[in-house]
């Protein structure tokens, strides 16, 4: 009997792996105002699922390929006439629509689309766990290695150039890391909830911290608490696991915001 024989243990480990990678990455998504970028990449993943089933390749490879293509397309097209939000809106919904149409062509294959839209963390196997942790550690290493360069590029592209950093290369690093996280997370939380896991923990961490590094660490801690709390809650109340994780994260965000509001109000009356 090993720990991995329990589906709850596997689900928890899978959720932790995704959150550890999503936390620092999510901070950059928030700082750079790329919230819809996560959405667009995640929606494109459905097209990846359809292609993977059609060509009988691994779902992970199919999703990774399409998510990467989407990420590079957005990076390349940005700043060429259309606003970033318009561009992401067009690409995101088109990719989702084409993905759904492509899935309908797959005759003889029964696709549980709900599993990809909302994920099925309780069905995570040992191989999935290996892929998730492999991808998560890769993304963590990449972001840790480029951390300072990414920060300077985020603050100001010209400041980066003056320090000998190419902000476009850093943007590419970020988009590749984002594509990897989406590809490994699709099994766990599904397309719809990936973007929320990227954004809610950093947003909840923001009022509690004073430095970028602290924000990434606190976001990771909030993510871990959401995974453990959400899965336990799902078990106790018999609720869907993926959405329960996001609900806990949203509640923590609410508490942090209220706490910050109270502290500001008290600070003003006390001063």
């Amino acid at each position: 009997m090993s720990l991995l024989d329990s589906f709850m243990a596997r689900a928890t480990l899978a959720g932790l792996g995704v959150m550890l990678a999503a936390a620092p990455l999510g901070c950059f998504v928030v700082w750079r105002r790329m919230a819809y970028f996560g959405d667009a990449t995640a929606h494109a993943a459905i097209l990846g699922v359809a292609l993977a089933l059609g060509f009988e390749i691994s779902i992970f490879v199919g999703v990774l390929a399409v998510a990467l293509a989407m990420a590079v397309t957005v990076s390349t097209l940005s700043g060429r006439g259309y606003g970033m939000d318009t561009l992401l809106g067009v690409l995101s919904h088109s990719a989702l629509a084409f993905g759904l149409v492509a899935v309908s062509f797959l005759q003889g294959v029964r696709v549980d689309l709900m599993a990809y839209l909302f994920g099925d963390i309780l069905a995570v196997g040992r191989m999935d766990l290996a892929i998730i942790w492999g991808g998560a550690l890769l993304v963590l290493a990449l972001v840790a290695w480029r951390w300072s360069a990414l920060l300077v590029s985020t603050l100001n592209p010209d400041l980066a150039h003056a320090s000998g950093i190419d902000p476009r290369r850093e943007q590419l690093v970020l988009t590749i890391a984002l594509a990897v996280v989406v590809a490994v997370a699709i099994k766990v939380v599904g397309v719809i909830l990936i973007a929320s896991l990227l954004i809610i923990p950093p947003a909840a961490a923001r009022p509690l911290v004073r430095t970028p590094e602290a924000m990434a660490l606190v976001a990771a801690a909030i993510g871990v608490a959401s995974v453990i709390g959400g899965l336990q809650g799902a078990l106790i109340f018999d609720t869907p696991a993926g959405p329960s994780i996001v609900c806990v994260a949203a509640l923590i965000f609410l508490l942090a915001s209220i706490g910050d509001g109270l502290r500001n109000a008290l600070g003003k009356t006390g001063a």
Binding site: V30, R32, S148, A149, L151, V209, E213
Partner: peptide
């Protein structure tokens, strides 16, 4: 230099970018 309000950064940390 417009620093996004979602990006917390102290003066000391800013001075240490990109080199600690």
């Amino acid at each position: 230099l417009q620093i996004d309000p979602t990006l917390p950064i102290t003066v000391a940390r800013f001075l240490g970018l990109p080199r600690r």
